[in-house]
C-alpha cells in the first residue's frame, strides 16, 4: 500500500510539480528549464474566478446532495437487514450505464422538444416550452444526479451501525423525534456525513463534462480549463501549474480542518 502510494501517487505528483516550472516547445513538448512564469500567469483574476465558479457549483451540489441523500441513507440504514443490501445496490445500479448515455437521456428529458416540456404543455401548465437545458439549473441537476450515490453510501454505513438501544432509550425517556435526531442520530452519523461531503465536494470541483453537456459550455470550470491545456492549447506546464495550485489549496484546507477538529477535541 505504501509502495503503491509512493510509486503511483507521490512520484507522478512530483513530476507534475517539476513540469509546472518548465516551458514547452511549439508542439507542446516539455522543455526542462526553470521558470515561474506559469505561476505568475495562474494568479490572474480570470483563473481565480473560474476556480471560484467551480467551487460554487461543487458547494451547491454538496448541499443539495446532503439534503436529498441523508433521509435516504437513514431510511436504508434503518430498514431491516434483509432489504438493506438490496436498496443500497439499487442506489448504485443506475450508474452502471455510461455517463454519456445517462446524460443524453437527461438532455432528451429537459430539451425544448423534450419529455418534460411535452408533459407540461399537454397539461396546459405552460403555454410555451421552457428552456430548462443549458442553464445553471441543468448543470446543478446533472451534478446532483451523478454525485448523489457518493453522498448516500458513506452516510448509510454510519447509520447502519447506530445503536438501537440508544435511540430506544431516548424515546423511553420521552424525547421528541426532533431531539432524538439532533442530539443522538446526527452526532453519531457525523463521520458518515463528513465522508460524504468529502466524496462529493472534492471530485465535483474538477468535474466538467456535465457543465459542458448540460450547461452548454458557457461557464468554463477549473477542470475544463486544465484539461484544455493538455488536449487543446498544448500547454502542459501551465495545466500542471493550475493543477498543483488546486492541490495546494485543497491540501491546505484539509490540513486546516483537521487542525481545528483536533483543537476542538482537546
Amino acid at each position: 500500500m505504501l509502495g503503491w502510494l509512493l510509486l503511483f501517487v507521490v512520484v507522478p505528483t512530483l513530476m507534475l510539480v517539476v513540469i509546472s516550472f518548465c516551458e514547452r516547445d511549439s508542439l507542446g513538448r516539455v522543455i526542462f528549464t526553470f521558470s515561474t512564469e506559469n505561476y505568475v500567469r495562474a494568479f490572474d483574476w480570470m483563473w481565480l474566478k473560474i476556480l471560484g465558479i467551480s467551487v460554487w457549483y461543487a458547494f451547491l451540489t454538496t448541499v443539495i446532495c446532503l439534503l436529498l441523500g441523508y433521509p435516504v441513507a437513514y431510511f436504508i440504514g434503518r430498514s431491516s437487514e434483509r432489504v438493506r443490501g438490496l436498496l443500497i445496490m439499487l442506489v448504485m445500479i443506475p450508474f452502471w450505464t455510461s455517463f454519456l448515455v445517462r446524460t443524453y437521456a437527461w438532455i432528451s428529458i429537459l430539451s425544448q422538444e423534450g419529455l418534460l416540456n411535452a408533459a407540461l404543455t399537454s397539461m396546459r401548465i405552460v403555454s410555451e416550452p421552457i428552456g430548462f437545458l443549458y442553464t445553471p439549473f441543468a448543470v446543478v441537476l446533472g451534478l446532483v444526479y451523478n454525485f448523489l450515490p457518493f453522498m448516500i453510501l458513506p452516510i448509510y454505513t454510519s447509520v447502519e451501525k447506530l445503536d438501537n438501544s440508544l435511540i430506544e432509550a431516548a424515546y423511553d425517556l420521552g424525547a421528541r423525534p426532533a431531539r432524538v435526531f439532533g442530539q443522538i442520530v446526527l452526532p453519531l452519523t457525523q463521520p458518515g456525513i463528513a465522508a460524504g461531503i468529502l466524496l462529493v465536494f472534492v471530485p465535483a470541483i474538477a468535474m466538467f463534462a456535465i457543465t459542458t453537456l448540460m450547461g452548454g459550455g458557457t461557464n468554463p470550470t477549473i477542470g475544463e480549463v486544465i484539461q484544455n491545456q493538455f488536449t487543446k492549447a498544448r500547454n502542459q506546464p501551465f495545466g500542471a501549474a493550475l493543477g498543483v495550485l488546486l492541490l495546494v489549496i485543497f491540501i491546505f484546507s484539509l490540513w486546516l480542518s483537521t487542525k481545528f477538529r483536533r483543537a476542538e477535541d482537546q
Partner: peptide
C-alpha cells in the same frame, strides 16, 4: 498525518493530470 493527506491527491487531481503523469511514469 502527511500520509493521510497524500491519499487525497488522486481525488482532487483533475483526471487529465493524473492520466498524463501516469502515462509518462
Amino acid at each position: 498525518q502527511t500520509l493521510g493527506l497524500l491519499i487525497f491527491i488522486p481525488m482532487v487531481m483533475p483526471e487529465v493530470l493524473m492520466g498524463v503523469s501516469l502515462l509518462v511514469l
